[in-house]
Write a protein that binds this DNA or RNA. Sequence first.
DNA 1: AGTTGATTTTAATCTAGATTAGAATATTGT
DNA 2: ACAATATTCTAATCTAGATTAAAATCAACT
Lengths: 239, 239
Amino acid sequence: MPRPVNDRPVRIGPGSVPTPADESRFALKRDRMLRAAAHCFNEKGYSGTSLKDVAARLGLTDAALYYYVRNKEELVYLCYVRAAEVGREALAAAVSEGSTGLDKVRRYLGAHVAGMVGERGPVAIMSEIPSLEPAHREEILALSRRHGAAFEKLLAEGIADGSIRPCDIRMTGNAIMGAINWIPKWFHGDAEQASHVVREFPEILSAGLAAPGKEHRDDGRRARAPADSPADSTVGRDT
Amino acid sequence: MPRPVNDRPVRIGPGSVPTPADESRFALKRDRMLRAAAHCFNEKGYSGTSLKDVAARLGLTDAALYYYVRNKEELVYLCYVRAAEVGREALAAAVSEGSTGLDKVRRYLGAHVAGMVGERGPVAIMSEIPSLEPAHREEILALSRRHGAAFEKLLAEGIADGSIRPCDIRMTGNAIMGAINWIPKWFHGDAEQASHVVREFPEILSAGLAAPGKEHRDDGRRARAPADSPADSTVGRDT
DNA sequence: AGTTGATTTTAATCTAGATTAGAATATTGT
DNA sequence: ACAATATTCTAATCTAGATTAAAATCAACT
């Protein structure tokens, strides 16, 4: 009963090199686990979710989680790494595929939101960065800053090429990132809703950016009544 | 040594009615305590702050906090009530003083942001609503929903009176509220910065709302370099 | 110059959950 | 079927922090 070290199971004994299949099985299972954890954290809050909760979602025992992760802190840390990944990939894709600054921003927003509410499964809201152990905290903060800086670069680029109207870059970044970061608080995985969010949200976030004359085609969108649900999302809305 | 019940100290014995001074002293101290707690929660995360941390900020012992609050859960709950208050007041003032829907929205944003970063001291980010005890959770969620609904009403009003361009009200609300809710994550009480935030942030949040022709006077604002600091606020930026 | 209640402290408990050890079961390859 | 590792479970610990009891200090009033 070897105990996995770092991020892969230890293989010992003669003639047993870890096959790619093994690695990926482990990686896949761990990823499922991270999604389960993210779901719990978003749904029940950090202090409100015990390892038993996370394990239950996987049909496992709390103790079983320790096969994949050193402790709860590392579980959170990995959730955050994963969340950062989703953002990074979205941004990278947008940068390589987009044209003007505004176009890149729009593509990024679309991709990131799509990732968060879609296939990349639930992404954990990063509210507990400060309680990570120092090394992990610094790493996540570094990713976070890198991402923020990269996004601000897009804004600057857009202003330079005239696609985005002049604005306070830092504040604009704060606003948009905040709106994105908060998504897990009000979105609770209804696949149908997801497509709606992917369609509308990026549009709304970038609505204020376009330079005069560069507005986006508004494809006959009309005021929609606040959907059906009671009315939610707000000064802290949540489950 | 009476123990306070509910939200005021118990007074007993002949000839000792609680004087207004007493009440307000208690209320004031408790408010200081809630601000200290909010500061800690925002800075160190929820699970990262012990009652000792909060007490330390007040020059007290952890045990002393129990004079003001039944337990940690109630402390968080009260922080959230306070946060909701700040939002509610801002919205109420905006509604009574504003003219068009857009104008009300702008006033609300200004007032709420000003409250969060200003005199009303730090406001706790509501990330742990789910771990409140059921009664408290429901109450906070109710406040939250009420606030969200009221804000959406402003948007609807603006669309009706032509000051706000047609848009998906629910999503727009989610976006703006998310950006606001996330403020405590990147703002760390520098009084100078505060005024900058109050000037810029509401402007940015409402930039995408104005109906064509109704744009706000852009008082010669120019692209500003990302200030000085490293570059932050982002997919989870924080201390 | 003491009485009364308000506020805080010291010094223990108490406890939910994280964590661990070791046994049990599953899976894969031969 | 067997060996060998992978994965999970059962059954205890362990522990940081919340919580409590009772005593000590403080502030206001007579």
